[in-house]
Simulated assay, not measured.
Amino acid sequence: MTSSRRKVSNLLGLAVLGLLQESPMHPHAMAATLRERGLDRSFKLTTGSLYDVVRALERAGWIAAQETARVGGRPERTVYAHTPLGKEEFVRWLDELLRVPADEYPKFLSAVTYLGALGPEGAAAALRERAGRLRELIDGIRREHEAALAEVPRLFVLEAEYALRVMETELAWAEQTVGEIEAGTLEWPDGWVVDTSSTKEA
């Protein structure tokens, strides 16, 4: 079954199925666990989107309510678990995502396409700032990864290692490109710099 025909295609659904692979869980605990593990960087997570996905997975027959429990004065919470079909779909979906490269449209790549419009100075300044922000992100993820390794097996935090490699590669590219701009080895064709002076004066 391809992703276009899959009853649930929101990747947050994959995260929910992954968590339920570990143990039955209610949505509040799912959200807390995803945030604790830093997985809210990998999956677009809001309370509304999580409950929408849980309902979609239940309608598809991939998860089912196991029990409804109340702790203290808190509202009742429904604990969900995989169905046999849900386990099969989880494995099939995961296998497909790992095997088949998909078209992705990152915002940064779109911006790099028109980097020339900023001019050499503007482009170098923007990339230098991005490089600084990337260093901060890399340091934060590295600290979180090291802390997580003290709690869980490395297999469960491989996504952090992948994120680090991607960011480190992007940082190296940004720094190299800034170096080429400053050295004058990256040519700027005539007419590519967007003149905004008239807009600023207005």
Rank of each mutant, 00 (worst) to 15 (best):
R6Y: 03
K7M: 10
N10T: 08
G13A: 07
A15Y: 05
E22G: 05
P24A: 15
P24L: 09
M25K: 14
P27G: 10
M30S: 11
A31L: 09
L34E: 09
L34N: 01
E36T: 04
E36D: 10
G38T: 01
L39S: 09
D40V: 05
R41Y: 08
L45A: 04
L45R: 09
G48Y: 08
G48D: 08
G48E: 07
V53L: 05
A56T: 02
R59C: 06
A60P: 03
W62T: 01
A65Q: 10
Q66R: 15
Q66L: 07
E67I: 05
T68M: 10
R70C: 00
V71C: 01
G73W: 01
R74T: 07
E76V: 01
T78Y: 06
V79W: 12
H82C: 04
T83D: 04
T83S: 00
G86K: 02
G86E: 04
K87V: 02
R92D: 08
R92F: 00
R92E: 08
L97F: 00
V100G: 00
P101N: 06
E104N: 09
Y105T: 13
K107W: 04
K107R: 12
L109D: 13
A111C: 09
Y114L: 14
G116E: 14
A117M: 09
G119Y: 05
G122L: 06
A125E: 12
R130F: 02
R130V: 08
R133E: 06
D139A: 15
D139S: 12
R143P: 00
A147L: 09
A148W: 02
L149K: 15
A150Q: 14
E151M: 07
V152K: 13
P153K: 01
F156D: 13
A160H: 15
V166Y: 11
M167I: 01
T169E: 14
T169G: 11
T169K: 10
E170D: 06
E175N: 03
V178T: 05
V178F: 11
I181K: 03
E182Q: 08
A183E: 11
T185D: 10
E187M: 12
W188V: 07
P189H: 11
W192F: 09
A202H: 11
A202N: 14
